[in-house]
Computed example of a mutant assay.
Amino acid sequence: MTASVFIDGAAGTTGLEIAERLASRADFTVLTLPDDRRKDDAARAELLNDADFAILCLPDEAAVAAVGMIRNDRTRVIDASTAHRVADGWTYGFPELVGEAAVREARFVSNPGCYPTGFLALVAPLVRAGLIPADWPYGCHAVSGYSGGGKALIERYEGADDARATAPSFRAYGLAGGHKHLPEMKVHAGLAREPLFSPAVLPTFRGMIVEVALPASAYIGHDADTLRNALSGFYAGSPIVTVRAPDPAMGELLLPATMAPWDGIDLYVFGGARGEQARLIAVLDNLGKGASGAALQNLNVMAGLPADAGLRLDR
């Protein structure tokens, strides 16, 4: 017997990709609304209550309202918005960090943000192990494909014939701080303060690199190899998170201009030649493990399936 899924907000970038991925799977049945009823609250409420699983791909306020439309104690929810990522009663949907059992048993699961996925994958295990401090003023530099900005940013890059010529080749933003991802980065890494977060956008549709640079004073008594080995042990056996040993000849990390859809995440720890620094780097697809792929992984776990069922993990 297949489980039913309703994607509320299926016309957005994340929702479209989830719907396309589920369409080829026999273990789920996707409940859909005609285009002219997508914003009909009565029709949405009916499917939210009919579905075994509801995946919310909505703005924050709309996601909160959608949860309020569920009148039963049966429908299970995955929320891809920011609204519930640090909310009481919600399980953070990063199975590698919170444990698959927690996600499997949860009724309400909040899908992580794309940037926080990279940051937390690197930092949270090391803080838990006591290898780096919880009260350090961490900085996080990250670049993402423009699809992470939703329809408005995609339009800016693709909307006109000359969009690629006139759109920025590098777009730094969040310059005044207060980015919406900061609360989950702090809370789920177990930090005493929010990191200094410097996000930017590149003229590529998908893909993301997240970096946390550490001076040696942040990991006194250890070295880059210790940090890398701790991450390798933490993610041992994961089919989705891979800790890569850097090739001695490796002088660069590249983000392809035409990255293929991918649901994995690669982690690196590079050490300075004189042991004076470590650079923690995560490479992922902002629409894969950073959004739609993570939602599908959470859906798999909640439905009692292997976490990597139907995921795109080949590169």
Rank of each mutant, 00 (worst) to 15 (best):
T2F: 03
A3G: 06
I7Q: 07
I7S: 11
D8S: 15
A10W: 01
A11W: 00
T13P: 07
R21C: 12
A23W: 00
S24N: 08
V30D: 10
T32G: 14
P34M: 07
P34H: 05
D36G: 07
A45L: 05
F53D: 05
P59I: 02
D60C: 09
E61C: 01
A63G: 12
A65Q: 08
A66C: 11
V67W: 06
I70L: 05
N72F: 00
D73M: 05
V77C: 12
I78M: 07
I78A: 11
D79W: 00
D79A: 08
S81P: 10
D88W: 00
W90Q: 05
F94W: 00
F94A: 13
E96I: 03
E96H: 03
A101E: 13
S110D: 05
P112Q: 03
G113K: 02
G113I: 06
G113D: 13
Y115S: 15
Y115C: 15
P116Y: 05
P116E: 11
A121I: 04
A121K: 00
V123Q: 12
V123G: 14
A124G: 13
A124Q: 08
P125R: 07
P125Q: 09
V127F: 05
V127A: 12
A129R: 07
I132V: 15
D135E: 10
P137N: 10
G145C: 09
Y146K: 04
L153H: 03
R156A: 15
Y157R: 02
E158L: 04
G159C: 10
G159D: 09
G159A: 09
G159H: 06
R164D: 12
A165V: 01
P168R: 00
S169Y: 06
L175P: 08
L175G: 15
G177R: 03
H181N: 15
M185V: 03
K186H: 09
V187L: 11
V187R: 11
L191F: 04
L191T: 04
R193V: 12
E194I: 02
L196R: 05
S198V: 12
P199Y: 02
P199E: 09
L202E: 09
F205H: 10
R206I: 13
R206V: 14
G207P: 14
V210Q: 04
A213F: 04
P215H: 02
A216M: 06
A218G: 10
H222S: 14
D225H: 06
G237S: 08
G237F: 02
S238C: 10
S238W: 01
P239W: 04
V243H: 10
R244N: 15
A245K: 08
D247A: 14
P248T: 04
E252S: 15
E252D: 13
L253P: 11
P256G: 11
A257R: 03
M259C: 10
G264T: 04
Y268G: 14
F270P: 12
G272S: 10
G272T: 04
A273T: 08
E276Y: 01
R279V: 11
L280E: 08
I281L: 14
V283L: 14
L287R: 02
L287D: 09
G288H: 05
K289W: 02
K289Q: 11
G290Y: 01
G290H: 02
A291Y: 03
A291V: 02
A294W: 01
A295K: 05
N298F: 02
N298R: 04
A303N: 09
G304R: 00
A307F: 03
A307C: 13
G310E: 06
L311S: 10
R312P: 11
R315M: 09
